[in-house]
């Protein structure tokens, strides 16, 4: 699955200037995607495809959203933006998502 923010990321990387503007106004819409918030994560969702029933609850509940659906309807986790909040694991009815401590 492709990030729905791909175009935003590419545009921001190309056009966003760090130069301070009056009022610190940001003129590139959607440019916050260049801040990869995945580094905030302490626990990482690990996905077990065998248990997944494709109910999409994780996809719906993800507040980022950092979960996309692949061609077959299975969730794909975008670790660039997943902050490890664990909502997906909590909502998953079949326990197909497990939160494991990040090891760096």
């Amino acid at each position: 699955a492709e990030s729905p923010f791909k175009a935003d990321i590419e545009r921001a990387q190309k056009e966003l200037s760090e130069k301070m503007t009056p009022g610190a106004i940001v003129y590139i819409p959607g440019s916050s995607v260049i801040n990869k918030t995945g580094s905030w994560r302490v626990f990482k969702p690990e996905f077990n495809r065998d248990k997944c029933v494709r109910c999409y609850l994780c996809y719906i509940y993800c507040p980022e959203p950092a979960i996309y659906l692949d061609e077959e309807g299975y969730p794909v986790f975008d670790y660039d933006y997943c902050k490890g909040c664990g909502i997906c694991a909590n909502e998953c009815p079949t326990k197909a998502i497990e939160m494991v401590r990040e090891v760096k």
Binding site: T21, G23, A24, I25, V26, P29, S31, S32
Partner: peptide, 14 residues
Amino acid sequence: HAYIDPARPITQGS
């Protein structure tokens, strides 16, 4: 700098 125009989306007060 600061005005609202749907054709020019910006972020103020970020």
